[in-house]
């Protein structure tokens, strides 16, 4: 279990407990947190679960694979360091305290 803070683009915070083994996207989906759409269902086939990971966490997450890198090219205003697709980030105990921020929109 990890406590994750999702911050909407407008600043509203949602702090929820997400079970180990889910993805960060599924944590948002299961808690009805707006701003993460995940149109493709978590298949890394779209970029609509894009977030900016808090700077303090950017280096602590598992590295992006090639497909996630490619898909981020199609995301709204991606940031080379902080952008991630939340469907590709598995929750572990090590992610307790993770903070992610939503982009202005998902495309």
């Amino acid at each position: 279990m990890a406590k994750i803070t999702y911050i909407e683009h407008g600043g509203k915070e949602h702090i929820v407990d997400v079970a180990t083994g889910l993805t960060v996207m599924e944590g948002a989906r299961d808690n009805n947190i707006p701003g993460i759409e995940a149109d493709c269902g978590g298949a890394c086939a779209c970029s609509t679960c894009h977030v900016y990971v808090d700077e303090a966490w950017a280096d602590k997450l598992p590295a992006k694979d090639a497909m996630e890198e490619d898909m981020l090219d199609f995301a709204w205003e991606p940031d080379a360091t902080k952008s991630r697709l939340t469907c590709q980030v598995k929750v572990t105990d090590a992610l307790d305290g993770l903070i992610v921020r939503m982009p202005e929109k998902q495309i």
Binding site: C40, G41, T48
Partner: peptide, 10 residues
Amino acid sequence: DRVIRLPETR
């Protein structure tokens, strides 16, 4: 079953 839905751009 799993549905893989593409974004509007694809």
